[in-house]
Nucleic acid binder design. Structure first.
Length: 256
DNA sequence: CTTAATGTTCCCCA
DNA sequence: TTGGGGAACATTAA
């Protein structure tokens, strides 16, 4: 569920429930290592709720809570504790459950801003994108997935952005012409913006904090469309593995 | 029974 | 130093 558009949508829906409220306590129902750190959030007021790449950040009086949804994480308001509830943020008057079937997600207290990630995929300028891209020998698909390069893009939006830019996922970044690199930047911003506007992609069971699904999955042109005809040229969509992840592309629209 | 799934991290090798 | 491949983490669904 969680790439930039989904996380952005969760932030927008959960923020009104948490902003300005005091966290009476944070309860954890997991033996994951992160569970130990969240006690420091107890008693603090949530000053702001914002997105940082794929993280949901709650600014507290001291430090912050960094929530990562992993593959199957959800934040749900007004939900009862279930078998996959890994943590509950208890506020006066409201509770937010962190559900996570596969347990790749986390909730941890940080003393300060998380670092080490590249510029946000929706905020990076074309100039900076070009400059960073030109230094990399990596394949485009691998680069887009690398949060140190730009933060926020995951497997769905990497494939959709490359299709929209007409670029092969295995193309080498440093060898892209300037016009093609600019096209890629534009495609990323377009795809992510449209996905945010549609509330993200609900491909398995993603829902926002109010339990509402997104609709951008209806706009996917290559992701999980293996063998289906390209909506632009009719060629069967191909699936390969890049950086250990399923990668979908049109062999005719996205030449090497 | 096998495979794949929206993610990240760590180890090994070239 | 950089990048690729593979494994690990944990669980469900087809």
């Amino acid at each position: 569920m969680p790439e930039l558009p989904e996380v952005e949508t969760v932030v927008r829906t959960v923020a009104p429930r948490l902003r300005g409220r005091r966290l009476l306590e944070v309860r954890c129902f997991t033996k994951k290592a992160w569970a130990g750190s969240v006690v420091k959030a107890a008693g603090q007021t949530v000053r702001d709720v914002r997105r940082y790449g794929k993280y949901i950040l709650l600014d507290l009086d001291r430090g912050l809570l960094a929530i990562h949804l992993g593959m199957t994480g959800k934040l749900l308001t007004g939900a009862a504790k279930g078998p996959y509830t890994r943590a509950v943020l208890v506020c006066d008057g409201a509770a937010v459950c962190f559900e996570d079937v596969r347990q790749f997600g986390s909730v941890r207290w940080l003393a300060g801003e998380p670092g080490g990630l590249g510029p946000d995929a929706l905020a990076i300028t074309s100039e900076e994108f070009l400059q960073r891209l030109g230094k990399k020998q990596a394949r485009l698909k691998a680069l887009l997935l690398n949060q140190s390069f730009i933060r926020g893009v995951g497997n769905i939006y990497a494939d959709e952005s490359l299709f929209r830019a007409g670029l092969h996922p295995l193309a080498l970044a440093a060898r892209l012409s300037k016009p093609r690199a600019l096209r890629l930047h534009g495609a990323i911003v377009e795809v992510l913006s449209e996905a945010v506007a549609k509330g993200g992609s609900s491909i398995s069971d993603y829902v926002d904090a109010d339990g509402q699904p997104g609709w951008f999955q209806l706009e996917h042109r290559v992701y999980q469309r293996t063998g289906e005809p390209c909506l632009a040229c009719g060629s069967p969509i191909r699936r390969i593995l890049v950086a250990q992840r399923s990668t979908h592309y049109c062999p005719r629209c996205q030449r090497r």
